[in-house]
Design a protein around this nucleic acid. Structure first.
Length: 482
RNA sequence: UCCUAAGUAGCUCAGCUGGUUAGAGCAUCUGACUGUUAAUCAGAGGGUCCCUGGUUCGAGUCCAGGCUUGGGAGCCA
């Protein structure tokens, strides 16, 4: 067993002049004398003082940025400024060398674009140390939140045979030999020969399966990987991402909104309470980035203040129809500054409109509800048409500043006849979803749920701006390295 | 997929209306110094100028096609 003390504990220790062993990776080696050592247990480094006069040249040469080393020495109060404790090394062991000519990380600022190209090494930077710690804490907080409320964590399938969900392009799953695919008489591919005896895909959503669980367990949630084969090239989309999808029986849209707002506030608060060092670092990092931006593009609140603001204020709730009225009267619409002008009820909101509502008009998270039925999915509950005969569904989207849509959800259509009518209109084959329809045949009940994009949450909390920097190994078009 | 900008040393970037041997800072290496905080000082090495064609006496620079990346848009979480 390797006996060692973690840097996080050493830095807080007040018991001096005792021998300790610390293992970690060298961040810098200054003046042939001072090692900044990090073991991942916290963002800060421990300073190791090397008696270079009594250390072999061979060892000194191998103390390079990136090398893994073991230090045994005396924990003492630091003689220098900048740190309170340090370790006077008495024994140095090189565990793993790091060729200084080849190791790409230098003790200096690197661009996020460059670090993305070395995603296998970017964990070793402070920024990614902070991002992935926060990511972990947020994931843990999600489970804690739901567990405390009595929800059941449901593992919905990653491989699905259904291609009727309509949530986007899917990745095919097959064991067929591409060079010799079995064919039917009409030359179409014979999926009966495939592994599952039918065509299969990676899941684009666990919602339909979660609904099945909710109809017995009452309150369930999923938290798993989700795959979309869209050719999306943005700072907000990934081909493989993680989604949290609660589904609650005996709940309406208002319950759904309350649940989503409570969840978001809970996990953000959890991050603030459990990642103070990481958030302070990222707040500072973002502030430095903003210094390079023109005044007009800088935000009034820093990252910590933004998170706190989010906790202290209720999300603004309004209907799509109300939002359209606000947008119609808005300055950018009247002055024709929007690329897509708002003139008619029924149009889908573009991201410039969402941004206006969230960032300019309300200046806080916004929950939009009751969208036109024509632009939403088949499973959303139909409202009674309004006095003008306009049809809306009980949908809700939660929009966040800088992120856009963080949550998309709805009260589900529990009435079999309404559901079948909608499926017919939207050309969704009933026979493929017979199991879904069965829930409406046998003891149907009002229920609601939503999908929360986990990486978008991490984006918001960390203040990072590209979604590819908040997941360890991002998958996006033309990129699946590592 | 569309619009737009970019691709030059390990990194960040400069390179003018086409013209000798393509530069800087940091990093690396060598030496000096030794309580440093991205240490400092001196010196040295380091290039498929994204790829393929084309124009030209001559292309890092101009043209065409392609690849990749950043930003914006669409699709969405």
């Amino acid at each position: 067993m390797i006996k060692r003390e973690k840097v996080v504990n050493i830095l807080q220790s007040t018991v001096f002049n005792r021998e300790i062993t610390v293992l970690g990776w060298v961040k810098t080696f200054r003046n042939n004398q001072f090692i900044a050592l990090n073991d991942g247990s916290c963002m800060s480094n421990i300073q190791i003082v090397v008696d270079f006069a009594n250390t072999s040249e061979d060892i000194l040469k191998k103390i390079t940025t990136g090398a893994a080393i073991s230090i045994t020495g005396q924990l003492v109060e630091s003689l220098g400024k900048g740190q309170s404790v340090e370790v006077k090394a008495t024994a140095i062991e090189i565990l793993g060398e790091s060729d200084a000519e080849k190791f790409p990380l230098q003790p200096k600022k690197h661009s996020l674009e460059f670090l993305r190209e070395i995603a296998h090494l970017r964990f070793r930077t402070q920024t990614f140390n902070a991002v992935f710690k926060i990511r972990h804490k947020l994931a843990f907080a999600v489970h804690q939140f739901f567990n405390d409320k009595g929800f059941v964590y449901l593992h919905t399938p990653i491989i699905t045979a259904s291609d009727a969900e309509g949530a986007g392009e899917m990745f095919r799953v097959t064991t067929l030999d591409f060079d010799a695919t079995p064919r039917n008489e009409d030359n179409s591919i014979n999926y009966k020969e495939d592994f599952f005896g039918r065509s299969a895909n990676l899941t684009v959503s666990g919602q339909l399966e979660a609904e099945l669980g909710a109809m017995a367990l009452g309150e369930v949630y999923t938290f798993g990987p989700t795959f979309r084969a869209e050719n999306s090239n943005t700072t907000r989309h990934l081909a493989e991402f993680w989604m949290i999808e609660p589904e609650v029986a005996f709940a309406d849209l208002e319950d759904n909104m309350n649940l989503a707002e409570d969840l978001l506030k809970y996990v953000i608060k959890y991050a603030i309470n459990h990642c103070p060092e990481e958030l302070a670092f990222l707040t500072n990092r973002l502030a430095e980035e903003e210094k390079n931006k023109p005044q007009a593009e800088r935000s009034d609140l820093d990252l910590m203040a933004k998170l706190q603001f989010c906790l202290d204020n209720n999300f603004e709730r309004l209907t799509y129809t109300e939002a359209i009225e606000i947008l119609k009267r808005s300055k950018p619409n009247q002055k024709k500054q929007f690329k897509y002008l708002i003139d008619e009820w029924g149009a889908d909101l573009q991201s410039e409109h969402e941004r206006y509502l969230v960032e300019k008009h309300f200046k806080k998270p916004v929950i939009l509800t009751d969208y036109p039925a024509d632009i939403k999915s088949f499973y959303m509950r139909m409202n009674e048409p309004d006095e003008q005969g306009r049809k809306t569904v009980r949908a809700m989207d939660i929009l966040f500043p800088g992120i856009g849509e963080m949550v998309g959800g709805s009260q589900r259509e529990e009435r079999l006849d309404y559901l079948k009518t909608r499926m017919g209109e939207m050309h969704i084959p009933e026979d493929e979803l017979y199991w879904y329809l069965d829930t409406r045949k046998f003891g149907t009940a009002p229920h609601a749920g939503f999908g929360l994009g986990f990486e978008r949450l991490v984006l918001f909390v960390t203040g990072m701006t590209n979604i590819r920097d908040v997941i360890p190994f991002p998958r996006f078009p033309k990129n699946a390295e590592f």
